[in-house]
């Protein structure tokens, strides 16, 4: 997911600057209130729904928030949107949950920064009768929340792997793996899915090199240049997200015949598929997550019926060079459905 990009900020190399990180942390979480009138006179009649995203800045979460906002307005509910300060800001998310509990929301939609980091606050909220739904990223265990609406990231990775393998058209694969950030749940699932779709394991000799890119286009470019310098035979690239794919494409510009696959479904990413910078991307649907999450809370407020289980909001292979046996949509469709 593109939100990986912001986690890079958490990596601190120089002791002096660690203090800067601490200072940023102290500033706490950011908040935007929106939806409905907030003057108290009529808010009593409206269902209040809390939304806690990983960050406020990432376009992916901006889209998620906007979609939740639209859906809430449509259903006559009030949305209170809060966010962590950066990806991995567990404390900011815990503060946000506590804030929402204090504001008597009916339900909380959360994209947990970390699968286990916010479980205590979630339990406290559920004990008060608030329905809690995970969006985009599942908690561990999944039963810590009432329900989850998310992309099956492993399945999305499988689609990338299958496509890249197929696009090699029988050539012997020599793969560069451009990972996101080690330890991220979503990254691990995508990586695992890609290998599964390709029919490989981490130790397979077809993998010529692996690099951590934090989903940053410049780091991905440098990593790809170095891996290609190491092995000029590389003909397939796994990327954690579209900025990483863009960096890889830049590093390989002028070298034909390398198949780059990606995941995310941003409009920039789809345009890069259209222009041939990379071969395919796998789109996910934050809008669906937001809509279904809001609807579930509204339903709960109406008839006390709690949602449950994992709902896969789906993922879609986007390419202009379809392969037989792999269901895909073209970039024209992609540009109509991309998230930002």
């Amino acid at each position: 997911m593109s939100h990986l990009r912001s986690s890079a900020r958490a990596s601190v190399r120089v002791p002096v600057v660690a203090a800067a990180g601490v200072a940023l942390l102290v500033a706490g979480c950011t908040s935007t209130k929106s939806g409905g009138s907030d003057d108290g006179s009529d808010s009593g009649g409206k269902v209040a729904i809390g939304l806690v995203t990983k960050t406020n800045s990432n376009p992916y979460f901006v889209k998620l928030r906007e979609s939740a906002q639209d859906e809430a307005s449509k259903k006559g509910a009030k949305l209170i949107a809060l966010a962590g300060k950066f990806d991995g800001d567990n404390q900011g998310q815990v503060d946000a949950i506590n804030n929402l509990v204090a504001q008597n929301v009916k339900g909380i939609l959360i994209t947990p920064s970390n699968s286990t980091g916010v479980l205590g606050a979630i339990k406290a909220a559920r004990d008060k009768g608030i329905v809690v739904i995970a969006l985009d990223t599942a908690t561990d265990p999944a039963s810590a929340v009432d329900a989850t609406f998310a992309t099956d990231n492993e399945a999305a990775g499988v689609k990338q792997g299958q496509y890249v393998k197929g696009a090699l058209k029988g050539k012997k694969p020599a793969i560069a793996v451009l990972d996101g950030t080690p330890g991220s749940t979503v990254d691990d699932l995508r990586h695992k899915g890609f290998l599964k779709g390709f029919g490989l394991t981490n130790g397979s000799p077809e993998i010529k090199g692996t690099a951590v890119t934090n989903g940053d286009q410049t780091k991905a470019q440098t990593a790809m240049e170095n891996l290609y310098q190491r092995d000029h035979g590389i003909n397939a690239v796994y990327t954690i997200n579209e900025p990483a794919a863009a960096g890889a494409a830049q590093a390989l510009s002028g070298k034909s015949g390398v198949v780059i696959g990606s995941i995310d479904g941003s409009c920039t990413g789809v345009r890069n598929v259209q222009s041939g910078k990379f071969a395919a991307t796998v789109m996910q649907f934050p809008k669906k997550m937001a809509q279904q999450g809001v609807d579930a809370v509204v339903d709960y407020a109406k008839d006390k019926k709690k949602p449950s289980g994992f709902t896969d909001t789906g993922s879609q292979l986007i390419t202009d060079k379809p392969l037989s046996g792999l269901e895909s949509k073209d970039t024209a469709w992609g540009l109509k459905n991309c998230w930002g």
Partner: peptide, 18 residues
Amino acid sequence: RIPNADPNAFQTGNLDSI
């Protein structure tokens, strides 16, 4: 280097330069 300006690029550029 990359003819594409991305607001999320170079997030560790300050630390790398230090």
